[in-house]
């Protein structure tokens, strides 16, 4: 049979998380159909159709599906589920919001945040903030899975576009309504897709310093900017910058951790980065223990020097 991949998108574009989840979905061995649930979401459907390995795109286009609220989106997934053996979504805030709701309605125990497909019914997933890896076999006939994007490569665009089929939507009373959103706007790369991430912690001391010290460095390196929980809690950086067990999971080529200690909850979000640099005044900080390169000293003198050394 077939795998259904619930896409994460904003109607106009498809996030890289979907392309990564597609790579995991393909490893299940069946054809993959991508579901775009949205409103005026044709552009996102067209982007999905271009990805290599997509057999078909299902476009459910209805005002009730704007903002991907969980109630209508999960109801749609459930309505389509009978034709699929597996239902997959990226473990983004949207996928994590919608898919467990659908899983319960299908009486399936979801497998969250997989990092490896061992077999179509067996998966590896991190537990305890990534301090352990669990291998689980699902005994449910249908599989419902969310995928950790950092663990899979993004599928590339193919040569031919897959067909786009429209699916009917029956809007139902959901009890929830979208009120507003305030999204971070930035010309920098997206945190979970960036090749380089520059991350700051409590040591930055204020949002002014956070911006003044980290942003020029990030721009020079074409890097995304991340933060520790302490930096976000203190208001130095917005919540969507948080890297960690309960924030975003990243695995860039280069992760530069500046003035953050590397608590296990933070390491959970970045320790699979290819190269880790720690800039910290404490040589015993946990981040220094796992870093490939550590520069011990005061970040407020080191970062200007680093800027200069980068030319």
């Amino acid at each position: 049979m077939t795998t259904l991949l619930l896409a994460d998108h904003d109607n106009a574009t498809l996030g890289s998380a979907t392309a990564r989840a597609l790579s995991a979905a393909r490893e299940l061995g069946a054809d993959v159909h991508v579901l775009i649930a949205g409103s005026n979401a044709k552009p996102a459907a067209e982007a999905a159709a271009k990805l290599e390995g997509v057999a078909k795109v299902l476009l459910a286009d209805d005002p009730s599906l704007d903002h991907q609220r969980a109630e209508p989106a999960a109801a749609l997934v459930v309505a389509l589920a009978k034709d699929y053996d597996a239902i997959v979504a990226p473990a983004t805030s949207s996928g994590k919001n919608i898919l467990p709701r659908a899983a319960a309605l299908l009486d399936v125990m979801q497998i969250s945040d997989i990092i490896k497909v061992v077999a179509p019914n067996t998966f590896e997933r991190p537990i305890y903030a990534g301090n352990a890896i669990e291998t689980v076999e699902s005994t449910d006939t249908k599989k419902v899975i969310t995928v950790r994007g950092a663990a899979f490569p993004a599928a590339k665009e193919g040569t031919a576009a897959a067909p786009i089929e429209t699916v009917a939507v029956t809007p139902a009373e959901s009890g929830s309504a979208f009120v507003s959103e305030s999204l971070s706007k930035s010309d920098r790369p997206e945190l979970t897709a960036a090749r380089i991430v520059v991350s700051g912690g409590r040591a930055l001391g204020s949002s002014e310093k956070f911006n003044e010290v980290l942003l020029p460095l990030a721009d020079k390196l074409h890097a995304a900017v991340g933060a520790s929980r302490a930096a976000v809690d203190a208001g130095y950086a917005p919540n969507d910058f948080q890297v960690g067990q309960t924030g975003k999971i990243v695995a860039p080529e280069l992760y530069i951790a500046i003035g953050l200690s590397g608590a296990i909850q933070h390491l959970a979000g970045m320790k699979d980065s290819k190269v880790i640099v720690a800039i910290n005044k404490d040589e015993d900080a946990p981040i220094v223990q796992i870093a490939d390169y550590s520069l011990i000293g005061d970040l407020f003198t080191i970062i200007p020097e680093l800027d200069k050394a980068l030319g």
Binding site: D10, S176, S180, E181, S182, P238, N239, D240, K248
Partner: peptide
């Protein structure tokens, strides 16, 4: 708290 920032629902 969503990936892109904040969203408010009623």
């Amino acid at each position: 708290e969503v990936d892109g920032g904040l969203e408010t629902l009623a």
